[in-house]
């Protein structure tokens, strides 16, 4: 290799590092360092507001294994993810397909369905507390109108978490819809036209043409949705504070409770690490199952 080529390569490397440096600094300061610190803290007795820390070894993790509420919270988090992600993506897909036409006024519909995404989550949470109110809430009024029984929603330990799932679908499906709409535009229209000539039904075209063609985007949306889903904190904080009877307590809220309400930073750190493992496990599961079935355009 000539000296010149090596020098150019080295220059390019330096430039690449220089360009990466700013974001690396931020990542290190606000992501990697906190992770390292939380691992360190999880092995200690750390009290919020007190600079002294005491070595505990694995005690916080042993507490976690014996903590009845931790397992319930983990179950709640899994329930939320496994319901809200598939349902909101399914709703988004149907919306996207329905709105992927060149008819007049479609832009208005698209904006309408995207609108919930733009509402600040705390405000949205407050609005849904009103919508779900057992006595005078419009949802119960509507149920009565349909001849269905009224529910206590956020006051009922069986319905509170599903109620938050329903509102999440409303909140997020518009966002997924927008991403999927963009993907639909890239599906070659001749495929559909050919299928139509062969008399293939709309449903079969959706299953056999549209979904495989947009599978990379769907996969992306599933990953993003999964990441979103374990981050729910705001709705729980605003709408239920984890209640009633811990039925809506999820990992992020439980970490907050332990760290800030109970000042137990050591245990909160152990929980945060459990969350990290939970999320990595979920993402791993998704990539091992769905990730393998993704079909990339131009792939052989």
């Amino acid at each position: 290799m000539s000296q010149n080529l090596v020098r150019t390569q080295r220059k390019e490397m330096l430039l690449a590092y220089a360009l990466l440096l700013p974001s690396l600094v931020f990542l290190a300061a606000f992501t990697y360092w906190p992770i390292v610190r939380s691992i360190w803290f999880s092995l200690h007795d750390v009290l919020l507001g007190d600079p002294d820390i005491y070595w505990l070894g694995a005690e916080n993790y042993l507490r976690l294994l014996n903590d009845r509420l931790f397992w319930k919270v983990l179950g709640n988090t899994a329930f939320y993810t496994l319901t809200s992600v598939p349902l909101s993506i399914a709703a988004a897909l149907l919306l996207a397909v329905a709105l992927d036409s060149k008819l007049r006024g479609m832009a208005i519909y698209r904006s309408a369905f995207f609108y919930p995404v733009m509402i600040p989550s705390v405000a949205a949470g407050m609005v849904w507390v009103f919508l779900y109110a057992p006595g005078y809430g419009p949802i119960n009024e509507a149920l009565t109108g349909l001849g269905l029984p009224r529910l206590d929603w956020l006051y009922d330990s069986k319905w509170a978490l599903p109620a938050i799932v329903i509102m999440s679908i409303w909140k997020y499906s518009g966002y997924f819809m927008l991403i999927l709409l963009a993907a639909l535009k890239l599906v070659p229209s001749d495929l559909h036209e050919a299928a139509k000539l062969d008399g293939i039904s709309a449903w079969d075209r959706l299953i056999h043409i549209t979904i495989p063609m947009i599978s990379p985007t769907l996969y992306f949306v599933i990953i993003i949705g999964t990441l979103h889903s374990y981050q729910i904190f705001d709705y729980v904080y605003v709408m239920t504070q984890g209640g009633p009877a811990d039925s809506t307590n999820v990992l992020t809220f439980y970490i907050y409770q332990n760290g800030f309400q109970y000042q137990d930073i050591g245990y909160a750190s152990a929980l945060a690490n459990a969350l990290l493992i939970f999320v990595l496990g979920l993402i791993g599961l998704v990539s091992l199952t769905l990730g393998r079935r993704v079909h990339y355009l131009g792939e052989r």
Binding site: L69, S157, G243, A245, Q257, Q261, Y262
Partner: peptide, 13 residues
Amino acid sequence: SKAREVLKSAIDR
């Protein structure tokens, strides 16, 4: 603070 949350949860359940 934790005592309160634990009791509230026990009562609710």
